[in-house]
Amino acid sequence: MKELQQESYFDGGLLQLIGWTIVGALITIFTIGICFPWALCMIQKWEASHTVINGHRLYFDGTAM
């Protein structure tokens, strides 16, 4: 029996990704690197929430701690 292959795609926009990256960089710069882990998690969460693999949306629940 042949399996149905479900769709995989990314539904985030390039401008949104650039915006989140700039916000993360500014947070890192203004806190002298202390909040880098938080900024990185913020960007990873955005990327995961806009990615669908085999019909399942990814979920990121990491923390900066």
Rank of each mutant, 00 (worst) to 15 (best):
G19H: 13
G19R: 06
P37R: 01
G24C: 05
L26V: 09
I27F: 11
L4G: 04
D61L: 15
T51I: 03
C41T: 08
C35G: 10
S49H: 08
N54G: 00
I27M: 13
W20Q: 15
V23A: 15
T51V: 05
F60G: 03
V23H: 14
G13E: 09
V52Q: 02
W38N: 07
I18S: 11
P37H: 03
L15Q: 14
Q16E: 12
F30S: 06
Q16Y: 06
T21S: 15
I22S: 09
T31M: 08
E7T: 09
W38Y: 11
L4P: 07
T63S: 14
I18M: 13
A64C: 15
T63E: 14
G13H: 11
T28Y: 09
G33N: 02
V23Y: 12
Y9I: 00
I27P: 07
R57H: 05
V23P: 06
P37D: 03
C35T: 03
Y9S: 01
I34E: 02
E47Q: 07
G13F: 03
I32D: 13
V23Q: 13
R57M: 05
V52R: 00
K45N: 10
V23C: 13
N54A: 08
A48D: 13
W38H: 01
W20E: 14
G12R: 01
F36I: 11
T51F: 04
F10Y: 14
K2R: 08
Y59I: 01
A25P: 04
M65F: 13
T21P: 05
A39N: 10
L40H: 07
A25R: 15
C41H: 08
Q6T: 04
G19L: 10
I34F: 01
F60A: 03
A25T: 10
G24W: 09
Y59Q: 12
C41F: 05
I27C: 12
S8N: 14
S8Y: 06
H56Q: 15
Q16F: 06
L15H: 11
S8F: 00
E7F: 12
Y9C: 02
D61E: 15
C35L: 11
R57K: 15
L40I: 07
I53A: 02
F30A: 06
V23M: 14
D61K: 15
A39L: 01
G33F: 04
T21K: 11
V52W: 01
W46P: 01
N54K: 08
I22Y: 12
L4D: 06
S49Y: 06
T28H: 09
D11E: 03
L26K: 07
T51L: 04
T21C: 11
C35Q: 01
C35V: 02
Q5W: 03
T51M: 08
N54D: 05
I18T: 14
I18Q: 13
Q5E: 08
I27L: 12
A48W: 09
M42V: 07
Q16R: 03
L40P: 09
Y9K: 08
W38K: 03
E7A: 15
I32A: 11
C35M: 06
Q5T: 05
M65T: 14
